[in-house]
């Protein structure tokens, strides 16, 4: 019982952390290489995020497109209809750099705080 609660808690915590950083990670993945929607899901999995659903990624890509951070183009597919492939715009690259710096600074503060707590415990 306790173990189940702990697993649920860890999953919830993971989801919260992901919520605040997934858009940035999507930009980073697209900066590395353009991709279509469900390819991004695979890449997130490969990167170690676990099973992030397409139902989460597609609306997020929609927002990034609305903000002008990603653009898309139809590319032919060998298996069926053309697929929409997303890539970063110049604004997207700039935003990613800014977010990356902010994240590194923030993560540094969090890590330092955790280290202090860890040594005093």
């Amino acid at each position: 019982m306790y173990r189940m609660i702990a697993v649920d808690d860890a999953a919830e915590r993971q989801a919260q952390l992901l919520r605040g950083s997934l858009d940035m990670c999507l930009l980073a993945l697209l900066a590395a290489e353009p991709a279509h929607g469900y390819e991004l899901v695979r890449r997130l999995d490969t990167a170690g995020f676990g099973a992030v659903s397409y139902g989460t990624v597609y609306p997020l890509i929609t927002r990034l497109h609305r903000l002008g951070l990603v653009a898309n183009a139809l590319e032919p597919s060998p298996t069926g209809p053309p697929r929409k492939v997303y890539r970063l715009t110049d604004t997207g690259h700039e935003r990613l750099s800014a977010w990356r710096e902010q994240w590194i600074q923030f993560a540094g503060v969090v890590n330092a705080t955790l280290d202090v707590k860890g040594t005093s415990a």
């Binding site: 929607g37 397409y54 139902g55 069926g80 697929r83 929409k84």
Partner: peptide, 25 residues
């Protein structure tokens, strides 16, 4: 539709892509 049809052509089930609650999606 374009996304789901492309995914279907790649062998992915559209219903699995959107999850159990398409309304929430």
């Amino acid at each position: 539709r374009a996304e789901l049809e492309a995914a279907q052509a790649d062998g992915l089930a559209p219903a699995e892509l959107l999850g159990a609650d398409p309304a929430a999606f």
